[in-house]
Write a protein that binds this DNA or RNA. Structure first.
Lengths: 109, 109
DNA sequence: CTTCACTACTTAGCGTTACTATATACCAGT
DNA sequence: ACTGGTATATAGTAACGCTAAGTAGTGAAG
């Protein structure tokens, strides 16, 4: 992972995961796969699991343990109302930053 | 500053400052003022100066000391070729992330 | 002449986050 | 037994923005 991307993911990766979780609960391994499919090809598994622990502790998701046919039990995360609120705020923060940056990019040309 | 914004600025603030510097050299206090005018109203001075030290050490900017009529001498930073290259990469990284996020936002609705 | 306000830069210590590396565990096929 | 895919956990590290406090120069107000 590039240094720039690593730093830029700070603060956005949590939002990305919350967004992935809207409407469709998922477990860690699945989320990692989803991220890789969506172009975040180099995100380490450990990063995702640590993030999931964090958002669980913050109370943004509900967790349910379910058996898997193919391995150890899965921890399925689903967005709760507090998580939805956090996601809303995330989009607001993102919009602000995004608009400022697009403005800057325009000015630079 | 909100927690989310603080985290999101990691990795982007450097790019923002590099972008501000394109074409028009500036000194720290001036950059802080510019940022505040552009909506980043709560960015601490210390943050900016620390960032400037960093990008100088990374060799992304050239520095010139100039007397001020109103206070201590100014350190004027100008983007050099390595800084321009870094800024290019920054925009690439930003574009990638930005596109993924806009896609996610669309899907969520 | 001293106090205040504005300009201008510096730095130590802190909290948060993503990464690296490693470990554990379950199951299927060879 | 061994390999490979599925699935989770965690200790240690580095990077970065924030807080807080300090130094220094100039000019105006009292």
């Amino acid at each position: 992972m590039g240094r720039q991307m690593t730093e830029m993911l700070k603060g956005t990766l949590e939002g990305i995961v919350l967004a992935l979780l809207t409407g469709k609960p998922a477990y860690g391994y699945e989320i990692t796969t989803l991220l890789r499919e969506q172009g975040f090809s180099e995100i380490a598994e450990g990063t995702v699991y640590a993030l999931l622990v964090r958002i669980e502790q913050k109370g943004l998701v509900d967790v349910e343990k379910r058996p898997s046919e193919k391995g150890p039990p899965r921890k399925v995360y689903s967005l709760n109302s507090q998580g939805e609120k956090e996601l809303d705020e995330f989009w607001n923060t993102w919009s602000f930053l995004s608009e400022r940056l697009e403005q800057l990019r325009k000015d630079g040309k």
